[in-house]
Design a protein around this nucleic acid. Structure first.
Lengths: 304, 304
DNA sequence: ACGATTCCATACATTTATGTATATCATCTG
DNA sequence: CAGATGATATACATAAATGTATGGAATCGT
C-alpha cells in the first residue's frame, strides 16, 4: 500500500548507492542486497516520483537530470542517517561510541594521529573515525561531527573555537640546498625547482594575493595531493610551502626567505547539538589542546 | 541480514512518528501501518542501536534520553525526504510540482494569499504549500523551499533577496477611539488598553529597545497568536502594533502617536540549489514582486 | 576472433515483513 | 463501580519483499 503514499525511505538509500556506483549490481554488492532487489527499488521509486531516474543500458545506468537533481537530498539523508547511528553509539555519560573528525590532509595525517592516539589511550571505548581530505565535509549536515577548518565558520548553530594561526614558510630539504644553493631573493626563486598545488586551492589564491610578483611562476612538481607534495619536498625535489610547526620536527628541513610567509587561520568546529555528548566533548577538547600545542611548537610528541 | 549491518531507514521514520505521537497505535495510524508493525520497527531499531528508546508503558510510551538525543536527526531525515519528494514533483522545465513557502503568521495569512493566488492562476500546475507560523522553519535543512524572513540570513548556501522594511505603527479601531479617546502622548498609553504578545518575541524585544519608557507596560489582551491579536485590534478591543501597509486596507483603523514606529527588515530566502528549479524560481520572483508592492503600498489587490 | 567478464531482465522459490484477531491491562467517565 | 476507550503484547495467516537461478547482450582483454 505504499503506492499512493510515501515511498520507503530505503529506496533513497538504494537510489544513492546506484548513483554512486553506476550500476545496479555494484550498488547491490555495496548494500548487501541482490541486483534484482536493487532494480525493483529503483523501479518502485521511479513510479513513486513519477519520473525516470536512469536510462537503462547494459554496462551501467545513466542517471537522468531528474536523478541528479535528487542526488544532494539523498546524500543529506545518508549523512544524517550515519550521524544518527554515531549519536546512538555512545552511552549517555560514558565516553564511548564513534566520533567522526574531519581535517585537511596535512593536519589529518601529520598532526592529528598523535593527538587522537593519546585521546584513544585515555578513553579505550572511544572509536575515532578520521577523514583526512581537503574536500570540506559539512558539519552542519553532519558529514562529520567535528572538523578542523582553515576558514572562519559563518554558519549559525555551530560551536566554533578559534585556535590561532598556523604559519607556512618556504622550506627545502638540506640535500636540495647542497645541490642547488639557497635562493637569496624572491626573484631568485624563479630559477629554482618549486613544488606546488595542481588545482587552484586556497593556498595558491592566498599566495597570489600576498606575493603578486610570484604570479605566473612555474612549478616543476605539482600534485593535488598534499602528502605527495610533502614527501616530494622531504625527498629533496624542490622548494615549497610547509607548515612551520611541522618543520620543527625534521632537522633536515631548511627555512628559506623567511620574509615570505602565509598564515592559515585555524578553527575547530562542532555542531552545537553535540556539545552535550561526552564523546564529542572530550574529542573537541583534546583537539583544541593538541592543536594549540602544535601551533605553539610544544609538540614534542610524535607517532613512534 | 540487516542485523549486523545498517538498520532500515524506514525504522527512522517509524521512530519519529512514535516520538511525535506518543504511542505505537497513534504512530501506526499516522503512517498507515498497524500497531504490531510499528512495535516491531521500534524493537528492531532498539536492537540495532543497542539502546532502549522507549520505556514501554500502557497508555503510551515514554521516550528515553537516548531517543530524545536522536530526535533531531530523525527530524532532519523527515524534512529532507519531504524536500526530495517536492524536488521530484516538478518536471525539468515546466512550472509544476509542489513548492513549500514559509512565512510569519501575519504575512502568511494577510499578504501572501493574494500574491500566491495570482501566481497559482498563472501556473495552474503549481501546487503551493504555505506554512504560516512564527516558528522559524529552516531553509537550509529544507523544511521549506522558500521563506520570508524578518532577520538577515547569516548562512551560506542561501540565495537571499532583501525586500525592504515593513514599518509597524500603533493602531486602534475607530470604535475604540470613539469610546476611549486618542492617547496624545507616550505616557498616556499607560491608561489605555493595549494588545500585545504573550511570549518574549522579536517585536517585544525591539520595542523595549527603542522605547524603554514603555518598559513594564501592561497589556490587557495577550496572545501568542498574531492573528488573534489582529482580530482583537480590529474588533476594537484596544491599541496595538499593526503593519502600516496592512492598515491601509482598512479605513476603520486609526494611526496613533505616529512618532512611534518599529521596522522589520524583510528578506526572501531560498536554498541556492533550488535556483535552477523553475517552480521555485517563479515563486521566488513572484514573492519578491508581491512583497515589494506590499511595502510600497501598491497592494490594491486583496482576496475576494 | 573468441572466451571471460559484467551488465540487466525475468521466472520461480523462499524468506521476511506485515496485517488480523485477540488477550490483557490502565485510565477516564458517568 | 461498571462500561467504554485506548494502550501494548502475542499467535497465526497472509501478503510482500527478497534471494536464487538463468538467459541475453555488450564490452574488455588476450
Amino acid at each position: 500500500m505504499e503506492s499512493s503514499s510515501e515511498p520507503s525511505w530505503d529506496f533513497y538509500r538504494t537510489f544513492l548507492a546506484v548513483l554512486q556506483h553506476g550500476s545496479l549490481s555494484a550498488a547491490a554488492r555495496d548494500l548487501g542486497l541482490t541486483q534484482p532487489t536493487v532494480g525493483r527499488h529503483i523501479d518502485a521509486l521511479e513510479k513513486a516520483v513519477g519520473a525516470e531516474l536512469f536510462t537503462r543500458s547494459q554496462q551501467g545506468l545513466l542517471p537522468t537530470d531528474a536523478a541528479l537533481a535528487l542526488k544532494p537530498y539523498a546524500e543529506t539523508l545518508a549523512s544524517t542517517a550515519a550521524a544518527l547511528l554515531r549519536a546512538a553509539s555512545g552511552s549517555k555519560d560514558k565516553v564511548s561510541g564513534t566520533v567522526r573528525v574531519s581535517a585537511s590532509e596535512v593536519i589529518g595525517t601529520e598532526v592529528l594521529p598523535a593527538i587522537l592516539a593519546e585521546l584513544q589511550a585515555k578513553y579505550p571505548d572511544l572509536i575515532i573515525e578520521l577523514s583526512a581530505s581537503d574536500a570540506v565535509e559539512d558539519v552542519l549536515q553532519r558529514e562529520a561531527d567535528i572538523a578542523v577548518r582553515m576558514v572562519a565558520p559563518a554558519q549559525e548553530a555551530l560551536l566554533a573555537r578559534h585556535i590561532g594561526t598556523i604559519t607556512l614558510g618556504l622550506f627545502a630539504h638540506r640535500s636540495y640546498i647542497e645541490r642547488h644553493g639557497k635562493p637569496e631573493s624572491l626573484e631568485a626563486l624563479r630559477r629554482h625547482k618549486l613544488i606546488g598545488f595542481d588545482r587552484q586551492t586556497a593556498y595558491i589564491r592566498m599566495m597570489q594575493k600576498r606575493y603578486p610578483m610570484l604570479d605566473g611562476i612555474s612549478f616543476s612538481f605539482r600534485s593535488d595531493h598534499s602528502i605527495a607534495l610533502h614527501n616530494a619536498l622531504r625527498a629533496g625535489i624542490g622548494i615549497g610551502f610547509y607548515q612551520i610547526p611541522l618543520a620543527r620536527r625534521d632537522a633536515n628541513l631548511v627555512r628559506l626567505l623567511p620574509e615570505i610567509e602565509l598564515s592559515l587561520d585555524t578553527w575547530i568546529v562542532m555542531h552545537e547539538n553535540l556539545k552535550t555528548s561526552p564523546r564529542c566533548r572530550v574529542t573537541f577538547d583534546a583537539l583544541v589542546a593538541g592543536l594549540l600545542d602544535y601551533i605553539k611548537g610544544n609538540n614534542a610528541k610524535e607517532l613512534p
